[in-house]
Computed example of a mutant assay.
Amino acid sequence: MASNSPDSDPKPQITNPPPKPTSKNKDFLTHLEIYLAKRDGVDKLLKISRYATKIILASSVLADEPLVTRLKSFESSVGVSRKALRLGKFIQDVNALRATQFSSHFHLNFVLSVIAYGGEGLYYFIEQFVWLGKAGLIDKRRLPALQKWSAWCEFVGYFGSVSLKVIELRKIDEEERCLLSSIDVTVLRGIECGKEQEKLRKLRGKKMMKRLSVVQDLADALMALADISDGRGRLSAPLLVSSAGLFSALISTHKNWVSC
């Protein structure tokens, strides 16, 4: 006869722990949470909504005047929100300038880096005062001058940025040619080149992202040029500038999403 003593504990039930999330099965909402936690992520979503609205307004597809008025108010509000979201962003350019080192062998890169980071940093710095003017803290009569200076600094910064990225693309092309030559020799010798193929794949992905970044900078430079010219000229047509802004926002959103 079996005895039921208090010392005999029941066997513990074994439960399977839930699987730990990995990079492969990470769901969309988790990725979205990480993306929206970044300032640039929110900024680019606002940029998409703003320039999509500007395209609708520039195309004159709406005949409802109250709706047009609401869209104009929304576009203006989003623009002010984006400026507030960029407070202190010039610090990243200050740190980038501090990290830039002069080298007699690459003096052109140093000069272009100063132009790129200096121009962009001044742009973000002046934009803080533009935001204060639009928010009503600074006399709005100063806004035209501030916006003009801001646009010039932005345009100069993009000139340096595009130049640097073109130089980097040339280096990537040269590295790609050398790697392809090495793979061809390896294949002829009958040796597996899995590591080289993987390196080539990553290099081509890097080149594609760099090309997209150049296109984005050119689109943003076009918008800065439109601000400098006060909307005059063929390159300052509202529909063209708005389309460039939306295209730039989509590219930047893709880059930030991939980096998450």
Rank of each mutant, 00 (worst) to 15 (best):
A2Q: 11
S3I: 12
N4E: 13
D7A: 15
K11D: 14
I14W: 15
T15F: 15
P17K: 09
P19E: 14
T22F: 05
S23A: 14
K26E: 12
H31V: 08
E33S: 13
E33W: 11
I34K: 10
Y35L: 07
Y35I: 00
A37P: 00
R39H: 03
D40S: 08
D43N: 07
D43C: 01
K44Y: 05
L45F: 06
I48T: 02
R50K: 08
A58T: 00
D64S: 13
L67F: 12
L71T: 04
K72Q: 15
S73V: 05
F74W: 13
F74T: 05
V80M: 11
K83M: 11
K83Y: 03
R86A: 10
Q92G: 06
D93M: 12
V94H: 02
L97M: 14
R98W: 11
T100S: 15
T100A: 15
Q101G: 08
S103V: 05
S104G: 07
S104E: 12
H105D: 15
L112P: 00
I115G: 00
I115Q: 05
G118R: 02
G121W: 01
G121S: 04
I126H: 01
V130G: 04
G133C: 13
A135Q: 14
A135C: 05
L137M: 13
I138N: 03
I138E: 02
K140Y: 06
K140E: 11
P144Q: 08
P144S: 09
F155E: 00
V156L: 09
G157T: 01
Y158N: 06
S163P: 03
K165E: 07
V166H: 12
I167L: 10
E168A: 12
K171L: 04
I172T: 06
E174N: 10
E175L: 06
V185L: 06
T186Q: 07
T186M: 07
V187F: 05
I191M: 10
C193S: 13
E196P: 02
L200N: 02
G205T: 04
G205D: 11
D217N: 12
D217S: 14
L218D: 00
L218Y: 03
A219L: 14
L222W: 04
L222N: 06
M223I: 06
I228H: 04
I228A: 02
G231T: 04
R232T: 15
A237I: 03
V241C: 06
A244E: 00
S248R: 02
A249M: 03
L250Q: 04
H254D: 09
V258Q: 15
V258Y: 14
C260K: 10
